[in-house]
């Protein structure tokens, strides 16, 4: 049975590193893995997504509408944008964090209110505050690995040796903080 993980956020939030670590862990755990990303112009502050699929044999690298087992959103409005890709019985892990897009920054639109309530009403959503947790660890950027921790725990993938995978794939000076981050992420969800 193929499982589908959708990671979404805003260009520059570190979804790519999180999905890279995830795919390496899944491959080493013996799964067939496919991952898809869209690069290019969308990187310039646009909406970004990484799609990871794993199982015995994965046919397609792309998650279809209503196909994701879990949606991990690094920014809360992005969770709504991608919600139709989540299975109705799927899980959502949402970072309680706002990044204003250009129409909001220049005053042409307002950042929508009640997003968290909407997500909780529509989906099986767990809201996490990865930014505060990352700041407690001393680097706001590691919120991506905190969210990875919440993701692997939610998907029952916490038995994989993530500590070793981080050690082997992250720059030396960021290893310790990322190991702490993934552990923090794991305890944020049930």
């Amino acid at each position: 049975m193929t499982k589908s993980i959708l990671l979404v956020g805003v260009g520059g939030q570190g979804t790519i590193l999180a999905s890279k670590l995830l795919t390496i862990g899944l491959m080493e755990a013996g799964y067939d893995v496919k991952m898809s990303e869209i690069h290019g112009m969308s990187q310039r502050g646009g909406s970004v997504s990484s799609q990871v699929r794993y199982g015995d044999k994965v046919e397609s690298p792309v998650i279809e509408i209503g196909g994701a087992d879990i949606l991990v959103s690094f920014e809360k409005m992005e969770a709504v944008r991608w919600l139709k890709y989540l299975k109705p019985e799927g899980k959502a892990v949402v970072n309680d964090f706002e990044i204003e897009s250009m129409p909001i920054l220049n005053g042409k639109a307002d950042y929508p209110e009640g997003i968290i309530e909407h997500l909780e009403e529509k989906a099986n959503a767990t809201i996490v505050d990865a930014v505060s947790k990352a700041e407690e660890l001393g680097n706001a950027k590691v919120m991506n690995v905190i969210l990875l921790g919440s993701l692997v725990k939610s998907m029952g993938l916490d038995e994989i040796d993530w500590e070793r995978i981080i050690r082997e794939n992250v720059k030396e000076r960021f290893i310790d903080i990322n190991i702490k981050a993934i552990k923090v992420g794991m305890v944020l969800v049930k």
């Binding site: 112009m41 310039r44 646009g46 409005m77 709504v80 944008r81 897009s101 929508p112």
Partner: peptide
């Protein structure tokens, strides 16, 4: 609940 997020000049 969703506002566009077009790419922008950095």
């Amino acid at each position: 609940k969703v506002v566009g997020r077009p790419p922008t000049l950095c």
